[in-house]
Design a protein around this nucleic acid. Structure first.
Length: 641
RNA sequence: GCCGGUGUAGCUCAGUCGGUAGAGCGGCUCACUCGUAAUGAGCAGGUCCGCGGUUCGAAUCCGCGCGCCGGCUCCA
């Protein structure tokens, strides 16, 4: 007679079953069926295989692909299927790691022979065979010493290294046929449960993410529970390609990056310069409203400054050169200059906080492999500010800066964010007391505003911890946006002081913060978010006038003048081409409004209006249209995207 | 910086076996004066990324360098 255990099912009912039954058997004995799409079981909050014997009483439910843990296990199994396929194609391949990631999975292999993109098809074919074979995935617990022996025997050097680095004992090992992997699991019950998958790319990746170690070969893939979901994923990838700012930017004549000028260096064309100027003007006005003073500092500063700041000893990626025997560095940050403005006179506590704002263009020597369109460049302009205040004022100032950042992001059309708190990195200056204090104040500010965040351990700047805000765009992608950094180091290093109420000298604290991040990156993000179809207030050309024939040009120019004097950015297409083609061209340049002017309009004194958003209307009153435009511009409304 | 891929006209791309370079779009010229997502014809446009090598001969094969793309590491 077997021992009985009590299992509480998801619907609240309870059943008594024999110990050691699997989820499937428990459900069966309770007269229930395994739900369609079940991937994992959850027993008392722990996710386990559907095939795992249940050894103790508890609450049992079933997870599908739609649950985060379900899709993770699903993709993790897909990565094992891929690894098994790779081992069949390349028996010499050594297994490293192969987790599920946000949108799929990868697996890293050590292999002398290189895996090429065109080899992926063959690996996919092998994966299909493994899935068709429907091999059971078996979980085993092994003493660590046995596992080490097992993987040594199989020549899995990386697995042995992993085992030697972990304290767990026993460890779990998953087996499917001839394939064995060290893995915590959980997994699908068998390889046949993987329905829709695709291998996406091959890439290099350092063993354990450490660039001093050897490089492995990584294969990326994704898996879904239905072909439709996979198709949708691939469609979204195509859509992302269509929005790529590296393609749209030059196409919309916003900017270009040319080898002749230099990699990572952006040249703004007239339309891009308009866009950027609109953003800059907006920022200047908003900062003034919030009590920031505009300052301007030079692009190069003496090397000594960067010694004092710590940039030199932190090996910050800078450009250096000499002028008449004197060493200079091109600024990678604006802070030192702002510090010297502060230091230009004796400061009293009644003056604080002091807030200096600069659209500061900085240059950083980014390694060649990391450059990426506008998102990662070597020269960029930050909407940078430094707030100098007392320790007591810091929390309120950080709160204000965070609120300012979010408020501004909403104006630009972003509504969903992820926040990260980055703590002390390995290479840094200052005492651990200071770091702890600074980190606590940032945490306090985040909880003051009940903002949820994750902690990025060791991701802070060398002088202090920071809050990073990531923006979620129209396609659900995340982008690096504002950053708020708390700094207890530079004020000391630069011997900054203020005279307190006690008539003694004190050291102020310093907050570095941006609202958009960098204008280059932000413009790149805006292009992708709006697919180039900017809200009216940002559109480089807001209205394009299309005269039907030459005789309509003069009247069109009059309309243009009226609109321009109302502050609208207007262009006119005087080419001798068909109206259809003029519309097509304006459309392609994503001009929000098109005005057609012909005999009828001149006669009736009206205009015909077309918009990117789909409006198509005749006999529109010009003055009424202009006030509509002005309203849309001043309200800074975002289009539906 | 590292791994892999890639580089032909302003853009997108074709170019066979190594035999001296092509299309579409765009540009320019001409004609057309046109009513809501491509009017027609003609013309111009090339250091085939750069340097070196192999060869009678290189866009094509090899080496090195550079840029770009996908990642890693790094990051606003």
């Amino acid at each position: 007679m077997k021992e009985l255990i009590d299992i509480k099912l998801a619907d609240g009912s309870e059943v008594s079953v024999e110990k050691g039954m699997t989820t499937l058997e428990v459900l069966k004995s309770a007269g229930r069926r395994l739900p369609e799409g079940a991937v994992l079981a959850e027993l008392d909050g722990e996710s386990v295989e559907l095939s795992r014997p249940i050894e103790s009483s508890g609450a049992l439910s079933v997870l599908g692909f739609d649950s985060p843990r379900g899709s993770e296990a699903y993709r993790h199994t897909a990565s094992h299927v891929m690894a098994q396929a790779v081992k069949r194609v390349h028996p010499d391949a050594k297994l490293a790691i192969g987790p599920a990631i946000e949108e799929g999975f990868y697996y890293d292999f050590g292999l002398d022979e290189t895996i090429k993109a065109e080899d992926l098809g063959a690996i996919e074919d092998e994966m299909r065979r493994i899935i068709a074979e429907d091999i059971p995935v078996e979980r085993k617990e092994l003493p660590a010493s046995e596992a080490i022996a097992l993987f040594k025997e199989r020549g899995e050097d990386y697995k042995v290294q992993l085992l030697e680095g972990i304290d767990e004992d026993p460890v779990t090992v998953y087996t499917q046929g001839d394939f064995v992997d060290l893995c915590r699991g959980p997994h699908l019950a068998s390889t046949g449960r993987v329905k829709a998958f695709k291998l996406l790319s091959v890439a290099g990746a350092y063993w354990r993410g450490d660039e001093s170690r050897e490089m492995l070969q990584r294969i990326y893939g994704t898996a879904f529970d239905t072909e439709e979901a996979l198709e949708e994923f691939l469609r979204l990838r195509k859509e992302a390609e269509r929005r790529d700012h590296r393609r749209l930017g030059p196409e919309l004549e916003l900017f270009s990056i040319r080898e002749e000028i230099g990699p990572g260096l952006v040249i703004y064309h007239p339309r891009g310069a308009v866009l950027r100027t609109v953003i800059e003007d907006f920022l200047k006005v908003e900062h003034a409203k919030k009590g920031y003073e505009l300052v301007i500092s030079p692009h190069i500063m003496r090397k000594d400054i960067w010694e004092t700041s710590g940039h030199l000893s932190m090996q910050y990626p800078m450009y250096f050169f000499d002028i008449e025997g004197q060493g200079y560095g091109i600024k990678p940050m604006n802070c030192p200059a702002h510090i010297y403005i502060y230091k230009s006179k004796t400061r009293g506590h009644n003056e604080l906080p002091i807030r200096y704002f600069e659209l500061g263009t900085v240059y950083r020597h980014e390694r060649s492999g990391v450059l990426h369109g506008l998102l990662r460049v070597r020269g960029f302009t930050q909407d940078d500010a430094h707030i100098f205040c007392t320790m007591e004022q810091a929390e309120a100032e950080i709160n204000d800066a965070v609120r300012f950042a979010f408020e501004t992001q909403r104006t630009f059309g972003f509504t969903s964010f992820r926040i990260a708190l980055s703590t002390r990195p390995d290479l840094s200056v200052g005492t651990s007391d200071d770091w702890e204090r600074a980190t606590d104040i940032l945490k306090q500010a985040l909880s003051d505003q009940s903002l949820e965040y994750v902690v990025d351990k060791g991701e802070g700047v060398f002088y202090g911890p920071k809050i990073d805000v990531k923006l979620e765009d129209a396609l659900g992608r995340l982008w690096q946006g504002p950053t708020i950094q708390f700094d207890l180091q530079l004020p000391t290093r630069f011997e900054m002081t203020y005279v307190g109420a006690d008539n003694q000298e004190h050291t102020p604290v310093m907050i570095h913060r941006t609202v958009l991040g960098s204008l280059e990156r932000y413009i790149g993000i805006l292009i992708e978010h709006y697919a180039g179809a900017f809200p009216l207030w940002l559109a480089p050309v807001q209205v394009e006038i299309l005269p039907i024939a030459d005789r309509h040009v003069e009247h069109s120019k009059e309309i243009m003048k009226i609109m321009e004097s109302a502050g609208v950015r207007v262009s006119i297409n005087e080419e001798r081409e068909t109206t259809s083609n003029k519309i097509r061209k304006a459309w392609r340049m994503k001009v929000p409004y098109m005005i057609v002017v012909g005999d009828k309009e001149i006669e009736s004194g009206t205009i015909s209006v077309r918009s990117l958003a789909g409006r198509d209307e005749r006999n529109v009153d010009l003055d009424g249209f202009i006030s509509e435009l002005c309203e849309e511009i001043t309200s800074r409304r975002s289009l539906e995207v």
